Simulated assay, not measured.
Amino acid sequence: MTEKDLIPSAYTNQVDKGSFEWSAPSNIALVKYWGKKANQIPANPSISFTLNNCKTITKLAYERKEDTNGISFDLLFEGQPKESFRPKIEKFFERVAGYLPFLEEYHFTIDTHNTFPHSSGIASSASGMAALAMNLMSLERELNPAMTDEHFYKKASFLARLGSGSACRSINGSVVVWGLHAEVEGSSDLFGVPFTGDVHEVFRNYKDTILLVDKGEKQVSSTVGHDLMHGHPYAERRFAQAHDNLSAIKKALTEGDVSAFIGIVESEALTLHAMMMTSMPYFILMKPNTLEIINHIWKFRQDTGIPVCFTLDAGANVHVLYPESVAVEVLGFINAELLVYCQNNQYICDEVGTGALSLY
């Protein structure tokens, strides 16, 4: 499928007003996407767990308008106008307008909220853009009822990517690959695809407890961070490493090799931060308490043999990953030893989920 395949021909139906509502989850990358080309194309492939509890729920109401001079919308966050969000939505609409020619024909009301606190330090752009893309595709399917499910979900992932790169991994679950990879059938730089392998049962109900070390704004935006990979002295080797690690984690996920999974996931997390520390300008996104948590996890795993590990996004918070079979022991460890390093002792319990869900 190419970008041209995602540009619709004339619609066969007409609708004047209505609404849709979708939830879409956040996701956590196991092999990290870091660095991008033009038009939100990833510099390397990535693979993620789709989460279950950390979601954005978005209702999209639409009504045909008389004029077609530009895109118009109202935006509500948790029931209140949120002007600070408008620029990102406006940019998103500009990027997708060529693929959704109906946009200028309607006035939209976007009413959105998260199931997790917006100030929690959990990235909401992936879930937010994914939920909005699902709503827009629901309207396009009203205009073109013959649309197949395959086209619906691929185009939704494509659109979400234009809003926030990792959002394309929040459409389907539970394991999603984004970016062209020689060993993943159907993989594409344009959209995320469900992992084609048979995921071993140990990973099907994997847990992710998110330790909120720092709930403040990011020290550096994702866009700026990705741009720092241009001309980075280690960029090309990093991109090759991501391909190798995706091959290795693909094998671990199908064989149930938790030990190999742990090694890849933790190395990927530290590599992401190493790339930021060796860029120009350079950034240290971890906090002292991030390192304390990592060291405690390593000691706990060594002392007990319990297969718990960590990963990180481009920030200070720690995702603690572990099989469902050891949840009691790991949660006991978190409460006894790690909460002291969390801001206001806060953490979020999540697990592998199944992707976006229609609520209408």
Rank of each mutant, 00 (worst) to 15 (best):
A252M: 02
S125H: 04
K154T: 08
G192C: 03
F102C: 05
A248P: 03
G163P: 04
S119D: 12
P81E: 10
E337P: 02
I122W: 07
A356C: 05
K250H: 14
L143W: 10
S247N: 14
T58E: 00
E266W: 00
M129S: 09
H181L: 05
P323Q: 00
L51M: 11
A252H: 06
S119R: 07
S127P: 10
Y347S: 07
A160D: 11
E150S: 15
A133F: 13
C168G: 06
S188R: 05
L143F: 15
E201R: 11
F333T: 02
V352L: 15
V258I: 14
P45C: 04
C309L: 02
E140K: 15
A43L: 13
A182L: 03
N295H: 13
G353I: 06
A133K: 10
I7P: 08
I264F: 01
G121M: 07
C309M: 12
W298P: 00
R64L: 03
F203Q: 04
A130K: 02
E292W: 12
V318D: 05
I264L: 01
F300G: 09
L159M: 05
D303S: 06
I294E: 02
I7N: 14
N114L: 06
E337K: 12
Y106I: 07
Q346M: 07
Q346C: 09
S187L: 06
E201Y: 14
N289K: 13
T254K: 08
V213G: 00
S84L: 04
L312N: 07
E255D: 12
E105L: 12
L211D: 06
S127A: 15
E3P: 14
I284M: 14
K207E: 00
G179D: 01
N144H: 12
T311P: 02
L253C: 02
A126N: 13
N53E: 14
G165N: 02
V184G: 02
V193I: 04
A167G: 11
V330N: 09
P101E: 01
V177N: 12
V177L: 01
P117Q: 04
E78H: 13
L159Y: 03
M286W: 12
M286K: 07
L180D: 08
F261T: 02
V326C: 11
G256Q: 08
S120H: 05
F116H: 06
L312W: 09
